[in-house]
Design a binder for these strands. Structure first.
Lengths: 194, 194
DNA sequence: GTCTATATGGAGATAGAC
DNA sequence: GTCTATCTCCATATAGAC
């Protein structure tokens, strides 16, 4: 049986899950060691900067995933309406209907926000801009597109908080469905794309 | 000059601010000691259960504030429309337009959620139920009242996350205003209260 | 009640053998 | 590259003088 972790890139998804479960401060090197199957020596070999470098790598990985799977399609698709639908599906899947929290959102409410301010800010700004771009190309007026995009990102983050707080994934499902319907209605009302 | 902290009740608001700033794990007893002006001896005198009891006291205090200032007016006011307006004002003020985070929401995304699950869940469930009650008494159909209430709590929590992430209080201001307008419109559309 | 001193544990990080 | 042993520091919590 091949080892699950053989190179740096294999460690990152495991780190992401550990940070999601325990938070940045709560994720001890012993826990990380157990979950990755690596000793401290190996961990510091891969991440000389320690836990901070691990978290930075995780944030970079998340950013890259959203950039290729969500933001770029939203910005560049010929069919912005399908791209918006695709975003809703991707997000529902990614957050497992609210069972999984958003690590970037959790970092935003934590003290570590100061350490990772740029990455946290970039993640949300890119999301909002990409969605606004799709809505505008789908025919929404620029102002409407921007406010709808912002409210959508807000609704997703808020739904993750509430679903977690109440330990009830139906909160997330209801919210994302209502958001999807609202975006669809706005695009229906908009003049057809030229 | 009288000491600022003279009894247990005076310590709690200070603890709340420290937990908001540093999170539960991040708030060390030394920090708490500095900010309250109390040594460990006094802190353990007031809170024999240590940090966990401090956080529980803070959550209880927050719950009490929302219960009297927000939930009860929403549930019991003769004028539910004004009560909803009052909630919007109270919340904007309380969260300082997004500069201040919601400690309960932050706990929900943290590992401490498990330790304080009941308090966290209670806070959000009570908020949602109280707002739904006001909307229904303002003439909204029960189903609409419940979904509007849930979406409002979601929007507030999401706006706090996004405002913090982007370090931009206008995000919160825009969101709360759009939420307020949406609630007002729903109550306008509803049949006048009997 | 409040302080200082201290016990004890676990954290992040490093060194060096293999 | 990976391990174990170890360093240092600071956390929570306690004890006991005043």
């Amino acid at each position: 049986m091949a080892k699950i972790v053989v190179e740096r890139a294999d460690v990152i998804p495991v780190l992401a899950e550990v940070f999601r479960e325990y938070g940045f401060e709560g994720a001890s090197l012993s826990t990380i060691g157990e979950r990755t199957g690596l000793g401290k020596g190996s961990l510091y070999h891969f991440f000389p900067g320690g836990k901070e470098e691990m978290a930075a790598a995780v944030l970079h990985d998340i950013d890259h995933w959203f950039e290729t799977q969500v933001y770029r399609p939203l910005r560049e698709s010929d069919d912005p309406r399908s791209a918006v639908d695709g975003m809703v599906r991707a997000v529902t899947d990614y957050f497992q209907s609210g069972k999984r929290i958003c690590l970037v959102g959790a970092f935003a409410l934590d003290t570590v926000r100061d350490r990772f301010a740029t990455a946290v800010s970039r993640y949300f700004a890119a999301w909002r801009a990409a969605l606004a771009s799709a809505l505008e190309r789908a025919g929404c007026a620029p102002d409407l597109a921007r406010s709808l995009a912002e409210e959508t990102v807000i609704a997703i983050q808020g739904a993750l908080v509430l679903a977690r707080a109440l330990d009830d994934t139906t909160v997330f499902s209801r919210s994302i469905e209502s958001t999807r319907a609202r975006l669809a209605a706005a695009m229906d009302r908009a003049p057809p794309a030229r």
